[in-house]
Amino acid sequence: MIENYRNSFLKEVEANVEEGEWVKMCMQCGVCSGSCPLGKFWDHPPQELFMMIRAGQRDQVLGSDSMWMCTSCYNCIVRCPRELPITHIMHGLAHYAKRQGLVPANQPTAKFAQKFWDNLMTKGRVNEFKLGLSLYFMNGFGEGIKVAMKNQKLGMNMLKAKRMNPKEIMGGHTVEDLSGFQQAIKKATELEDARIAQPGG
């Protein structure tokens, strides 16, 4: 009988979004929305996103920048009376929006999150120095210089405490079996792509 209530977007989410099969379990109590530390900035808090998915509002959901404001604090997960893995669904929706090319332009966390992933894939470990630089310059060169100047003192403080190392620009920490590492993640990506590309999931 449940099939009657499941529109095509809900089915799409269930098939393609990480932990998406949980969306239909939401009972609309709103505890997640009230528990979210950045909830006041979300156009659509989790409870609302779940209802919108069930109402078939595909573009409004995937084009929203709300789920990109998830700080991964897990308040919503531990408080949800129905134990929905809400944090993971937010990550899943964000990733799926990225896959569909529907992320709002210049969404800062979407840009940073992509840079983080690209950074860690390069050497298998995060290069904090390069990540910091790429963050400064993610809105263009002119803006980057301004941000770098503003954060100069912070950088000097970190340097002095030996918690930042400019030599990382030369390469930095790495996994030794870099090709094995990259092959494994490439394979995982291919397997997932093939699964999600299937029509109707």
Binding site: E18, S72, T87, H91, G92, A94, H95, K98, R99, T109, A110, F112, A113, Q114, F116, W117, D118, L120, M121, G124, R125, V126, V175, E176, D177, F181, A184, I185, K187, A188, T189, L191, E192, I196
Partner: peptide
């Protein structure tokens, strides 16, 4: 030879399986 776990912010570029594979390694 441990690798990065992708923390809680790797999800834009990394899907579920690639991220799980990082930890699985």
């Amino acid at each position: 030879d441990w690798n990065c776990c992708a923390a809680s912010i790797g999800y834009a570029g990394g899907g579920e399986l690639p991220r799980l594979t990082l930890s699985a390694r």
